[in-house]
Design a protein around this nucleic acid. Structure first.
Lengths: 228, 228
DNA sequence: CCGGTTTGTCACGAAACCGACACGGAACGA
DNA sequence: TCGTTCCGTGTCGGTTTCGTGACAAACCGG
């Protein structure tokens, strides 16, 4: 089920966590928090946030180590990590980015800037969740208006097919396994047969080809499906 | 043929342009330059760079205006823009990110940090161009999209041949024994006849040579097979 | 409550893929 | 040169994977 983007806040100071959660939720996003590195890794794994706000100074596991571990696992690799640091030395910035962190902000920062950065990172990873219009080839998907066009003709899609297509359009060309699609489109805890994906792929194809275009969804035997 | 990622450098000072191009190319990337905003828009449109480095202070069109226009056109919307600014006031940072800029760096900056940021942005937008794509000779294998090209012609491979080829491409030139290949390609605990490898090597060769190229897979009698 | 829409499952056929075998030819050693 | 070993490949039966029409249950707006 696609809902509003989820931000994982990792900070050992309760006051910081509360302040950040409050501001994040004020932007229409959802927030969860972790107070140390180990908790952060567990939560990242279980909840799959869309972006992670990571304090550099943490008890137990340091921020940089958490970041490295996140980027080492395929399950969490693609989640953007924004490192929040009190140090402003450039070395740390480079090291942070080299371990795979996606962005970096130094204390003191303004809430406005931080929110802007969170959104900038979200925009890249989950374009549809913040209202952008996706375009791939002759396909155009307006997430906010919940409409899809192909070569200026509007398509009729059911909710599931809509989410399916928007997942494909977020990363054109990438192959998604049936399990990954069930995860993103149906939701983590729903059990449906993985062959159900096939059926919806079929329905989506039918809708996409209704006005004569060719089939834009590629089947990768033994692996899954991809757009283009 | 996919080539190395392209960076568009927009700066009105010739010395800066030269310095940046030099450093970018030293990282194995390609660079093109523009000296004002209008030229930048034209080049962005024509060349479709993978990332744009945009000076804030420009004659004619300001950096922020260029950014806005880039993000307004679908053709260039998804190209990450890194704003380079002499001002360090926070307001500008927020405004920069709000117009759709993807990252922000203030002068004075270090070349190391700038390069780290360029790479961080490339990693996200063209993940396939910086990590997940293997290139060996005229062969290109995109793991994420599950596609293989030889000299721009796409190859049709079954799952086993695909895994076989990607194993070879991970270490070009290395000789793999049949047992090692069975381990990597088929899996540890599967029993299949080791001669089966021969058959799949044959099928892979056939696919690789389908459009006329020579045989890139070398047989090492008594030892196994190798790519190149 | 009702008619249309959406959804998940199943079953069946088609297509792709796989592994084994067998035979012929190439490479090698003496 | 000759015998032996190793490799290339055409063929074939069996299996896996996909596509899709059919259907009943769930859902939903009115």
């Amino acid at each position: 089920m696609v809902q509003s983007p989820l931000v994982l806040v990792v900070d050992d100071e309760p006051a910081q966590r509360a302040m950040l959660s409050y501001n994040i939720e004020a932007q229409g996003l959802r927030a969860i928090t972790a107070s140390d590195g180990e908790e952060a890794l567990v939560l990242a794994d279980e909840q799959r946030p869309d972006v992670i706000l990571l304090d550099w100074m943490l008890p137990r596991l340091s921020g940089i180590e958490v970041c490295r571990q996140l980027k080492a696992r395929t399950a969490t690799r693609e989640i953007p990590v924004i490192i929040v640091s009190a140090r402003s030395e450039e070395e740390d910035r480079v090291r942070g980015l080299d371990t795979g962190a996606d962005d970096y902000i130094t204390k003191p920062y303004s809430v406005n800037e931080l929110m802007a950065r969170i959104k900038a990172n979200l925009r890249r990873v989950r374009p549809t969740s913040i209202g952008a219009v996706l375009e791939v080839g002759d396909l155009r998907l307006d997430a906010e208006a919940h409409r899809v066009f192909r070569a200026d003709a509007e398509l009729r899609l059911g909710p599931t097919e809509f989410r399916l297509l928007s997942t494909f359009m977020e990363r054109p060309g990438r192959v998604w396994s049936r399990e990954q699609l069930l995860d993103r489109v149906w939701g983590r805890d729903i059990y449906v047969d993985s062959r159900t994906v096939d059926v919806h792929i079929g329905r989506l194809r039918k809708a996409l080809m209704a006005s004569g275009g060719d089939n834009p969804i590629r089947t990768v035997r033994g692996a899954g499906y991809a757009l283009g």
